[in-house]
Design a protein around this nucleic acid. Sequence first.
DNA 1: GTGAAAGCGCTAACAC
DNA 2: GTGTTAGCGCTTTCAC
Lengths: 346, 346
Amino acid sequence: MVTPQENKTITIYDIAREAGVSPSTVSRVLTNSANVRSEKKEKVQQLIKKYNFKPNALAKGLSDTKSKLIGVIIADVRNPYYAAVFVACEVAAKRRGYMTLLCNSLGDMQQELEQMEILRQQRVDAIIHLGGRADDLETNKKYVKKVKERLNVPLVITGKLDGLDCYKVQIDAKKAAELLMEHLIEQGHRKIALIGGRLDVISTYEKYQTYMSMVEKYQLDFKEEYIITGHYNNETGYIGMQQLIEQNTLPTAVVAINDYTAAGVMRCLAEHGYRIPQDVAVVSYDNTDIAKLLMPTLTSIDYNYDLLGERLVDTAIGAIGQEEVPELQMITPHLVVRESSVWTVQ
Amino acid sequence: MVTPQENKTITIYDIAREAGVSPSTVSRVLTNSANVRSEKKEKVQQLIKKYNFKPNALAKGLSDTKSKLIGVIIADVRNPYYAAVFVACEVAAKRRGYMTLLCNSLGDMQQELEQMEILRQQRVDAIIHLGGRADDLETNKKYVKKVKERLNVPLVITGKLDGLDCYKVQIDAKKAAELLMEHLIEQGHRKIALIGGRLDVISTYEKYQTYMSMVEKYQLDFKEEYIITGHYNNETGYIGMQQLIEQNTLPTAVVAINDYTAAGVMRCLAEHGYRIPQDVAVVSYDNTDIAKLLMPTLTSIDYNYDLLGERLVDTAIGAIGQEEVPELQMITPHLVVRESSVWTVQ
DNA sequence: GTGAAAGCGCTAACAC
DNA sequence: GTGTTAGCGCTTTCAC
């Protein structure tokens, strides 16, 4: 049998004893919270190194009521969008001396609430919540009520939650949709379809709205059939595209709700013998790894995940420290043009 | 400014006072560690519900020296392989009353060591480490030495670490390679190339070895040029395939080290006008989401991520509880056949 | 079956 | 500057 190495866990008291000082002095050099005579300080530091001493985070957290933990509830880290945001959060948090505690809610409200409880139990100092209830177009009253009752730490989201004091770091969905539409219009497209996503998700709804106003503004050829909602996956893209083809309402360009959906759209087009982008151009949101793997490579909207993660974390930490933090911040997306929408790219 | 809701955090003492019992009694009903007269028990439980009381995990952990946290160090959760394993671990851990604390090492040894320290500081009860040093073919002595000195909780890995007591839940790489090779051989292939991966990674090396013995066993047409190592990404696949084409050593089938690499291989083939699988078949390991998105869809080896995650976690928890846990366990992979290797599969 | 008390390892007044 | 003391919120003997 394998037995864990028995490295006696040493405490602040052990250090203090051997250094000939009091535990508080050790604590002081640990936290740098007060001046300590340099000889003692050095002695202590030397012992800390010698024993590779790391203060017990549980005890520290219990004592000063700060766990230095930020809870992150996301829909699903297996989705590359959330994975990118999470890693960015982790990096940003680490840089500021925090750890992240990740929970995958799988978009389920019960899980979201339960995970919030668990995070509360772990005494996280703040919670970042992406996806699920935090991105609904219509705020779920019951959810807000429960959260309000239970949560006593700052909450940061990318969507909105009416009637709840929380911080928002949003991606400018309007801008994102405009970039895509203007790009397509520049390429001469006037028949543009929208595939995938649910209109009860705020960012999706905003993209839809922006689309409609662009249709108006540029007097595009519009058909009801061009709007196909659904999920955020491959199948939705495939089925949606199939529908357009079968209905004889083929557009010259498709805006997919994300890269997964775009992949489905592209497969369907290919199977039916349509060339991309010559016959139908395809573009999408999120610019995940997938965009570079597809053939042709996919034009997509990038959100600057590093910046998004940093903003989320900075906002959380600012709020923890009772700083004056803006309630609403915006991330400006940008367009990454690839083969699926332009003939002559690289 | 947004202020966090001031929900007074209530403690075991508050419950005790209102219930007219002692804190220990509350603790007893909380942990179910001793019999409590049912009236008192009910009274306490009722108050717990009333106030939605959740015991402070920090205090509990400090007191009983069990954090109920499992640290998970992986190379990069943005890689769908690791994302799948992590989510499986999270689910399995949750089912058993544990939380997971995720760290992305990005394959860097310094980070791995640092994260191990941080996890130690958080008093995790066990660590699961995937990728990086825990998957080296040649164990890094320095790494093992440091870990040995520092770690005092069970360690579970999928690779190997010589000279370190730890638990291993391995994927049967030999079996995986055999499945792929036999599948290709059945399809009549005798010129099979290997693209991507580093031979200093144990699983990759084992796949390479198995390949060589299959070449021997089935007397396949072998060329040195058929072995192309590199990274685990798209580019490696593209460049590797290009090399085979330019050298005039085109095989009839390619085994890519993962789905990313396969995507690169497929792109290169497509750009050169080769049909998949008619001219060249492509197969790979990991069976991530990507396999279903590519065109044609990709034949790949699946590892049963749920089972893998469960085994990792069960092993960790067993070891925490000082149970007799097998030092080495094997996960049997299986083949998922798709379009990229067979003509008639839809 | 239940309460009192000590202790987990740290921080933070408060004195000196 | 530095030590003493009192918590932080639980669990766990140890009596009764």
